[in-house]
């Protein structure tokens, strides 16, 4: 079953208990497969006891299927979805400081404008831009800025949300306490 399709990008979105050590467990599990985490972003959901983690990992489909099952097996993980097979919207935000010598300033501003990036800081020699977009857009922007000399780049890591019509992601919202829908995928185990 191994390696029929070359490794590709997988976006995993997880709802987890908002507790100490959860991220370490998740990172450990992915590291144990020999995979690098390309990006990770974490934040609270509308229910403060639940966090959402978005992971981007390159891996074989069949290994990623195991990863998803194993993540699901972790006690603190409430729900995992591999968005790769779904319709979704993705965004990343970057802050980038680029050399802006006077002759280049107009050109940099024009690029920023086309990409709807904002100048959030400036010095005599640099502009700092803020931009958001999907992977392709961010990549294209950075390629255009690269010739001017990028001094520093900070990225938030990718976040993604399923299209509203898609059931798995709406289920996710329910667990996350969004929109007042009740019921989680993993209903709690009850023992007496």
């Amino acid at each position: 079953m191994k390696g029929q399709i070359p490794p590709r990008r997988h976006i995993l979105t997880l709802l987890v208990e908002n507790q100490v050590g959860v991220l370490a467990r998740i990172a450990g599990l992915i590291a144990a497969k020999g995979y690098n985490i390309d990006s990770v972003s974490v934040g609270e959901t509308m229910d403060a006891s639940v966090s959402r983690i978005t992971l981007v990992v390159h891996g074989d489909d069949w290994v990623m299927e195991q990863v998803v099952k194993q993540l699901n097996r972790l006690i603190e993980v409430i729900k995992v979805v591999d968005l790769t097979e779904e319709e979704f919207i993705e965004r990343e935000m970057i802050l980038v400081r680029v050399n802006a010598d006077p002759p280049n300033r107009a050109e940099i501003l024009r690029i920023a404008d086309i990409f709807r990036a904002k100048v959030v800081d400036l010095t005599h020699r640099t502009y700092t831009l803020e931009a958001t977009g999907d992977e392709d857009k961010i990549h294209a922007l950075l390629e255009l800025l690269r010739p001017f000399g990028i001094k520093e780049l900070v990225r938030t890591g990718l976040i993604a949300i399923g299209r509203a019509s898609k059931t798995p992601s709406t289920k996710l919202e329910r667990v996350a306490g969004g929109d007042g829908e009740e019921g989680a995928k993993k209903s709690p185990a009850v023992a007496t």
Binding site: V16, E17, L74, I75, E76, V77, I78, V175, A184, K186, S187, P188, A189, V190, A191, T192
Partner: peptide
């Protein structure tokens, strides 16, 4: 406790 409820765990 009489019972446990762990939302992330339900074999």
């Amino acid at each position: 406790p009489k019972s446990v409820a762990i939302r992330g765990y339900n074999p």
